[in-house]
Amino acid sequence: MKPMPRYTPIDLIGWATFLTMTLGLYLIFMYAPTEQKMGIVQRIFYFHLPSAWTSFLAFFVVAVSSFLYLWRRERKWDRIAYASAEIGVVFCSLVLLTGPIWARPVWNVWWTWDPRLTTTLILWLMYVGYLMLRSSSESSKTSRFTAVFGILAFLDVPLVYMSTRWWRTIHPKPVIGGEPGSSGLAPEMALTLIVCLLAFTLFYIYLMAQRISLEKLKDEIEEIKQNFETPVERSK
């Protein structure tokens, strides 16, 4: 008899992600009503906003775990920061890609230097810099450097947002239809959005768990390699 497959918590999160994502897709295309003014393209919003939320969450996690790393000096916080920065950049790229697709038919431009857009772009640039710093620092210093940068970049976010807002005070506030608060969301739309937010958050947690375990394996291999390289010391 075959042994029962054992599910780890990660697998469960994976399945939960799959189910909520499928439900989300169903709701987006079958359930949510088409927005009156913007038409079908508005449905991209259900992926656009959750991506933005996930990337902000990810960058927040980078800052917190960077701080904890400098404080506690435990390798695990460094791994979390790294994984979260990578995933954050992916979701931030998604925001920057889905945004123009939505903006073009609705605002008639691909891009506008609206504070939210500008801040997202700057965030993206900062965390791409973070990843570059990671890949090109001397290995013994990587974790400390990126932790310091992660904290400083996060401190900067409110300032970037404020300055870009003041910078464009003359600019008319773009009408972001369908965003909560600004233009009233139909209850079906709100439900779809909530399911999508949940799906993306679960997806983030799933990716994090996978990425962290990958980093752990890397560390283990590194350790084994070092043990091979110094057999004399080992036998002592």
Partner: peptide, 26 residues
């Protein structure tokens, strides 16, 4: 930090410019 990276001179503006955006705008 950037003097301890492989790309050195390039690393500094890549890290610095996005962070000093508020200063530049101001």
């Amino acid at each position: 930090m950037s003097i301890h990276t492989k790309t050195r001179e390039v690393m500094l503006p890549v890290l610095l410019f996005p962070v000093v955006v508020p200063v530049i705008i101001g």
